[in-house]
């Protein structure tokens, strides 16, 4: 018995042209994620051009993204705090792939920004912009700890989504 596994090499064009038959399925799998009270308020804040944090009076921490419960004191947190739209880079990455693994010619630079006015280590994941068009340029212009500022969409275009902040740019 021939046990050699030969396989059949296929090219994209074999499938596209119909030389090789295929069965295709495109799912319509949708989701709606309920933001909850704290993130709901945070998103309303973004629409108004504000970054909102949540303060616990017991430990005095201000957390962003906000949550209604202090995970350290184990109690409901107390008040909303409007924070600045500036911060410092906690960590960043230079990415040549999109979320769906498709390739990019210019890199995206996702970063965690520690927001000014929030407790140390509190930050949001967002994108850096105006930091160069190549890995070399990005690495030359971005350092951990560097101050950055939010660049907002025009007020009339904001929708109450995280993308209401277009990106964070270095403070010149």
């Amino acid at each position: 018995m021939d046990t050699k596994l030969r396989g059949t090499a296929l090219r994209e064009d074999d499938l596209r042209s119909g030389r090789v038959l295929t069965t295709e399925w495109r799912g319509k799998i949708q989701y709606t994620w309920d933001a909850g009270v704290a993130i709901g308020q945070f998103l309303d804040g973004l629409k108004a051009g504000k970054l909102l944090g949540r303060k616990c009076q017991q430990c005095q921490r201000v957390v962003i993204p906000p949550r209604m419960f202090c995970e350290i004191c184990f109690r409901r947190s107390d008040e909303w705090v409007t924070l600045k739209d500036t911060g410092r880079i906690n960590t960043f990455s230079v990415s040549y792939v999109n979320w769906d693994a498709s390739r990019r010619t210019t890199p995206q630079v996702p970063a965690v920004i520690e927001i000014d006015g929030a407790s140390p280590g509190m930050g949001i994941l967002h994108m850096l912009g105006e930091v160069g068009e190549s890995l070399e340029q990005v690495l030359a212009s971005v350092q951990v700890g560097m101050p950055v500022q939010a660049v907002w969409k025009p007020a009339e275009q904001r929708e109450g989504q995280i993308t209401d902040v277009l990106y964070f740019r270095p403070v010149k």
């Binding site: 069965t23 399925w25 799998i29 989701y31 709606t32 994620w33 998103l43």
Partner: peptide, 19 residues
């Protein structure tokens, strides 16, 4: 008043039937 985020998973496949 509830805030939600909707999206589409964009899942698909193309099955070849074998030899």
């Amino acid at each position: 008043d509830l805030r939600s985020v909707s999206g589409d998973w964009g899942v698909w496949y193309r099955y070849t039937h074998g030899v």
